[in-house]
């Protein structure tokens, strides 16, 4: 038990090597980048979902909108995974025990899987001439998943 505690939290008297655990201002700065990243990620996902619901870019095909947004959505995912992992590293042993954090990771996994399977299929060029059909509820599920990831993130911050 003691060994596990030392591995997770370091020696009690030691000055943390990790900047985020050492200086208080590092956390809000990294978190600001994390907020920019989620704006890019959730913002572009929302635009794509709105397109699937027929609420914007109706003159452009779904696959064209998807192709244009994908690099920016993927950039957002990359920023989130890097900054998120770094925020986590500041107090890893604590986070893994928190229900909000575990929920967020589970929801994030679901949202990513849904995005790269169902939404990818829904926005494929082969589907462009087909009626919206099942793709409208899929867009709603996508929006719901990403918003719930965001809510779980706020929940972690409020604990």
């Amino acid at each position: 038990m003691l060994l596990a505690q030392v591995i997770l939290q370091g020696l009690p008297e030691a000055i943390p090597v990790n900047p985020i655990a050492r200086w208080v201002w590092v956390f809000p700065v990294v978190e600001s980048i994390h907020i920019c990243g989620f704006t890019l990620l959730v913002g572009t996902v929302t635009i794509l979902d709105l397109r699937l619901l027929g609420l914007c870019f109706r003159q452009q095909s779904i696959s064209q909108v998807a192709k244009n947004l994908a690099p920016w959505t993927n950039t957002g995912i990359l920023i989130q995974l890097i900054t998120g992992a770094y925020l986590f590293s500041g107090d890893a042993g604590e986070y893994v025990q928190v229900a909000a954090f575990r929920s967020k990771m589970l929801l994030l996994l679901l949202a990513l899987i849904f995005h790269f399977t169902v939404i990818r299929k829904a926005t494929a060029a082969a589907q462009d001439s087909a009626p919206l059909g099942w793709r409208m509820p899929a867009a709603v599920v996508s929006l719901g998943l990403w918003v719930s990831v965001l809510l779980a993130g706020l929940w972690i911050g409020n604990l």
Partner: peptide, 30 residues
């Protein structure tokens, strides 16, 4: 807080894509 943050994503997403279009980094054919 929740409503504010969700609105940041919607507002920010549309602002970013609009600006990136002007910069020629997305939706160049639109």
């Amino acid at each position: 807080l929740i409503v504010h943050v969700i609105s940041i994503a919607l507002f920010g997403g549309t602002v970013v894509i609009g600006n990136l279009r002007v910069l020629g980094k997305t939706m160049r054919s639109v």
